[in-house]
Design a binder for these strands. Sequence first.
DNA 1: ATAGTAGGTTACTTCCAGTAGGGAACGGTA
DNA 2: TACCGTTCCCTACTGGAAGTAACCTACTAT
Lengths: 212, 212
Amino acid sequence: MTSAETRTERRRRMPRADRERQMMTIAEAVFSERGYAATSMDEIADRVGVSKPMIYEYFGSKEGLLVACIRQVRTELREVTAQAVIGARSPEEALRNGLVSFFRFTDDHRRSWELLLRTETAVVGPAAVAEIETARQEQIQLHIALFSAYMPNAEQRSLEAAAEILVGACERLSVWYVRHDDVTPEEAAEHIMRMTWFGLRSELEHPDDHGA
Amino acid sequence: MTSAETRTERRRRMPRADRERQMMTIAEAVFSERGYAATSMDEIADRVGVSKPMIYEYFGSKEGLLVACIRQVRTELREVTAQAVIGARSPEEALRNGLVSFFRFTDDHRRSWELLLRTETAVVGPAAVAEIETARQEQIQLHIALFSAYMPNAEQRSLEAAAEILVGACERLSVWYVRHDDVTPEEAAEHIMRMTWFGLRSELEHPDDHGA
DNA sequence: ATAGTAGGTTACTTCCAGTAGGGAACGGTA
DNA sequence: TACCGTTCCCTACTGGAAGTAACCTACTAT
């Protein structure tokens, strides 16, 4: 088992597209488990079973790799939420459907979602920040489209502010949500609805006004 | 001007407390202008006019320096907002006062605030993340205390969720806010009030119900 | 004047992102 | 089958920045 070993253990060549997917999967896992800063490219290369320059060949830089991971999550999230709101019969229903699908998404893709949540802006450089900001903007645009369909008289600025608030609320509640295993996506969505749709005022005035 | 130079240009010794403040001030500026990751300790040392080991002597690590900066902002913010809500005569007033003071704070300490906003979690390591999370928790506790005073029958979990939502909303709206120079703190606070106090529903039903 | 301490420095080590400069397997063509 | 270009892949390096060891110097109190 001297030379046979090296020959049989030889790592297989792989088409670029496959290798890229594999790299992204592993990178996502390692980044979100150990943290971006604490992860070295050598480690990812090791786990992939390939040498470091390959990753640079395909993704250009460490940040490039991160951006690719984020972009994938972002795209999925956009499609899921956009799907969820179509066909709703009222603004309330549209909002609730969107929220439920959002929290379901964070459940189903917990690891990817944490990567996105935890990958904020200071350390990574402009590209990754921009990528996350794009994810938010996509959600914001979705909300604005939603709101303006039902509130055609509202000022543009108010719509923007409302959308930003909603996105911030979701982002933050999702952090709380992943810490509470016994909360369902529907319940999480309901918390947001109570606050942003019915308003805190209604809690004081008639604590059981809204459904469930 | 051979030896005279080195003698007269000699940098002054400074008591530790003063030097620490100076280092933090400069670090805060450099971090927030160039970004944490892109800033080298040598550069900060240069600007301070001191050698790198001094910073390590006082703050232990690059992250330690960052944490010190964040902690200061956090403390100020806590005091400002806590002050703002005392003496309010209704929950609505308390909430609005807190919000206005928050947005005023982001105006007055724009650079520090951006550092805190932009210093999220991926790259920096656990200590800095914890520090920022503490800042959020302080605001969350303040909100919970506020809510529970007026809504004694609500479930603890709902209070928590409401507080998280509010903090997320503020955090996100502050990003939007710093991009819009012509928005006042009062207007920003009002956007949050509309959403979280009156609720979106009220915008649809009677678009001009609430004040201004 | 002098010993002790607080404030300060130079010159290093280590670690990691990123790169130069190849090599080997595969597909097509003759 | 032998050739050739392309795609996939490697070893071995460079450079820069975090962090440290070891030493120095100005001030302070007695």
